[in-house]
């Protein structure tokens, strides 16, 4: 799910950045610090929409840098348990399941979270999961295919967001090709 974050943060600016481009430099510093960062609490920050200095900056002792408190608005993404997301299957399709990418989120869908009628076809190039009920291309999960998954668990580390997904439900799984 996407969130609008409104938070405070501190950025440090070099004295050379204090001048007519002060606001731009400050925004850039905020973007550099936040965009792409992952936090268990707020998920992954996708983009900084707005940043305003809150009061004046203070010169930091010892470094001479200017510390500015910034009030920023950012777009963040955090996967919630039970959420349904669309994603694209990545190269990794193996006998245990498959990986897919839902925006910044890496999702693994295990064999146990698939409908029983899905079977792994190792001999195909590339290897894929195929439904035994309807053997059309619409039911084949292979790299580049679009899938709809329900998130059943998430985990964030310093640089990436991961989740476990399931397609074992009506209206989940392979999506028809986009026309």
């Amino acid at each position: 799910m996407f969130y609008l974050l409104q938070r405070l943060t501190n950025v440090r600016l070099h004295p050379s950045q204090i001048g007519p481009h002060y606001i731009a430099a400050m925004k850039e510093a905020v973007e550099k610090e936040l965009e792409g960062s992952v936090n268990a609490d707020r998920g992954i920050v996708l983009t900084v929409i707005d940043a305003d200095p809150r009061g004046r900056g203070h010169v930091q002792d010892g470094t001479g840098l200017v510390v500015v408190e910034v009030n920023y608005t950012a777009l963040a993404f955090k996967a919630r348990k039970g959420e349904v997301l669309d994603g694209i299957v990545t190269e990794e399709v193996n006998s245990l399941g498959f990986f897919c990418q839902c925006g910044p989120l890496q999702v693994f869908v295990s064999k146990s979270s698939m409908p029983m009628h899905y079977q792994f076809v190792a001999n195909a190039t590339p290897p894929c999961w195929q439904s035994t009920e309807k053997k059309t291309d619409d039911a084949t999960i292979k790299p580049e295919a679009r899938v709809r998954v329900r998130i059943i668990g998430t985990n964030n580390d310093a640089t990436n967001v991961f989740a476990i997904g399931s397609i074992n439900e009506d209206y989940l799984g392979k999506l028809p090709e986009q026309v």
């Binding site: 245990l96 693994f108 146990s112 059943i152 668990g153 991961f162």
Partner: peptide, 21 residues
């Protein structure tokens, strides 16, 4: 997806791939 009985056979990203715990 019962966490009590799940044996956590497959672990991905530090989570059980079956129950998500």
């Amino acid at each position: 997806v019962d966490k009590e009985s799940c044996r956590h056979d497959v672990v991905v990203f530090g989570m059980c791939a079956a129950c998500g715990s």
